[in-house]
Amino acid sequence: MEWVNAIVQGILLGGLYALFAAGLSLIFGVMRLVNIAHGDLIVAAAYLALVVVQVTGLHPLASAVIVVPLMAAFGYVMQRLLLNPTIGKDLLSPLLVTFGISVILQNGLLATFTADSRRLAAGGIETATLHVLPGLNIGYLPLLMFVAAIVIIYGLELVFSRTSLGRAFRATSDDPEIAQLMMLDRRHVFGMAMALSAAVVAIAGIFLAIRTSFDPASGPARLLFGFEAVIIGGLGNLWGTLAGGIVLGVAQTVGAQISPGWQILAGHLVFFLILAIRPRGLFPRMD
């Protein structure tokens, strides 16, 4: 039953990783940009939630009404000011600019909040569990995160397939030159993509803050988990990304079951294993 429990917890953890991954996957899909600061943005959102809860007394989950729009606005401005000037030139410039943003965010958080690890108390939701079977408990919070991941991915799919903004994203991704002739301002479209990504990042950050303790250096690991979920799932497929997150989550919890030191390592090794046997991921988009 221990192993069953580990697998179930891993599946639920996969929801959080899918949330880390969704924003990363979204901006890569629209503008072929890989944002190295993605994990640091998640951690920044976690700190923002912490501050919002302290200042307003809102429930951590309710802090989303402030954190999400603030992060989205930050994402939009960051894209317009720092990233748009680098898009379309070469691989190096956008990558290194996001790397610089990552360094600034990490050290900015360190200067503001010190290196102490923090956690966001959410009034008991983080410890409440559902006893399914003897030895198999499902926490309310992991369950909530998993459901939130499904809802958000479904929502993103809807935005992409049904809305004018989604058409603009796809058209700009397909053919950025001709998309301009559709009266689309590429700078704005990219800004909106980053804003949407940062909105998802905000939710991921709030969940991260409630689920585990975090510190200013927690970002890179989140970037790597999100990235691994994207690659395992297959590029350009958000449901595949959820599957990738689940595979990664299960690998980690099963690894931790073997030995605590193996938790993260097992996830990385499964990532490389899948890269070796299925380089395009488990569910690549048919092109």
């Binding site: 796809r170 058209a171 397909d174 030159e177 002739l181 009266m183 689309l184």
Partner: peptide, 22 residues
Amino acid sequence: PDLIARRGIAMVPEGRRLFRSL
């Protein structure tokens, strides 16, 4: 280009250039 398009100039580009995911 997007502002020029807004003014009322449209083009059928060489090679069609349809958006393949639309």
